[in-house]
Design a protein around this nucleic acid. Structure first.
Lengths: 194, 194
DNA sequence: TGCATTTGCCTAAAACCTTTAGGCAAATGA
DNA sequence: TCATTTGCCTAAAGGTTTTAGGCAAATGCA
């Protein structure tokens, strides 16, 4: 009886592919076993349980995404860097919707600590070096950028922007223009009324 | 044998409560039957299946959210309206995380058509009447606002902003200030280089 | 090479969720 | 009052998760 050569990493990779094909919430230990043509119980030697499997897929996606982001940022600054990072998220979500959904999984603190989450925050912060922001404004801006990137990508992916006129590429460009303008001219703490 | 008085609406309402208590993805036909102290199969006289139940919860949440938004916008304009609408989303997500997650459910076109989705878009558009934007910039701005609101709320809810210094309330205020400033000074289509 | 240990996948089985089919009793209404 | 409709039930099949225990393949050491 020939062995299938399973391992936690291979399961996570196959799980990520499966997620892109059928959606992250359809990723199941059973479906994965079927894909390896192996009995379900066999997977439990490699992953603790279903939650563990999903966490591994999430960590994989976060790493991939961080790697792409690091690549894209190399040698860029200012709006160029802003656009590059934004496009990494959007393109990744379009190419790998299941993995992107996985990356959104709420991780327990232990898993979160070993995740690439910190790299993502660092890279967003790096972009802001091209603009003139000091703490705590920098943190506010990091959060704004994260919100826009994630919010836009997830609404677009979920079809929230369909059935409407200006195409989404145009909107995306204009949003990036707007963010660039905003960062170059970040409003002071207290905007005077009117 | 006394009847439990089930109905599609009661199931949706109870499902929404359950979602807030244990998370939307833990909402199951079984759990709901247990809550009504009724056999599982009995629910299938009122909802078509599990997907149907979830869709009804999503539609309920979208309606509630739209009602709150309409209330909040009444008599407000400009930044006042912007802040009010933004807070409706954020507060709703914090008070009803399960319902908020439900509202994010990808609806099939048929359900989407009967949903309050259109009202939401309309209300965001209404806010922009307080600013000087014409089409297609208005649509771009609607999409930006949707992205920021949804993105921020879902990151904050998912714990994405935890373990960090400036508190999230402060960031939220500053982001609203920034959006207001941006809308008052929306950049023209072609930002000159440099 | 030969043997002991480890490792990997298996069968079996229990628990839970989903969904359909068919039945009886309660509610409704003529 | 009696017929019909409606609501919840039992039964059953099929799928996913998870644990326990077993045998054979791979590995490693003499």
């Amino acid at each position: 009886m020939v062995r299938a050569g399973l391992s936690a990493e291979r399961l996570a990779r196959a799980g990520a592919e499966l997620a892109d094909e059928v959606g992250f919430d359809q990723v199941t230990v059973s479906a994965l076993a079927r894909r390896f043509d192996v009995r379900v119980a066999s997977l439990y030697s490699h992953v603790k349980n279903s939650q563990d499997l999903k966490t591994r897929i999430a960590l994989l996606a976060l790493e991939e995404l961080a790697d792409r982001a690091a690549d894209a940022l190399a040698g860029r600054a200012g709006k160029d860097a802003l656009t590059a990072l934004a496009n990494v998220y959007r393109d990744y979500a379009r190419e790998h919707p299941g993995r992107y959904a996985a990356a959104q999984l709420r991780l327990d603190p232990e898993a979160a600590a070993t995740s690439a989450g910190g790299r993502h925050a660092q890279m967003t912060r790096a972009i802001l070096r091209g603009y003139d922001l000091t703490e705590p404004d920098q943190t506010h801006a990091v959060r704004l950028l994260g919100s826009v990137f994630h919010g836009y990508v997830s609404l677009e992916l979920g079809g929230g922007f369909s059935h409407s006129a200006p195409d989404t590429q145009e909107t995306w460009s204009r949003i990036l223009d707007a963010l660039d303008a905003l960062l170059r001219n970040w409003p002071a703490a207290h905007v005077p009324p009117r």
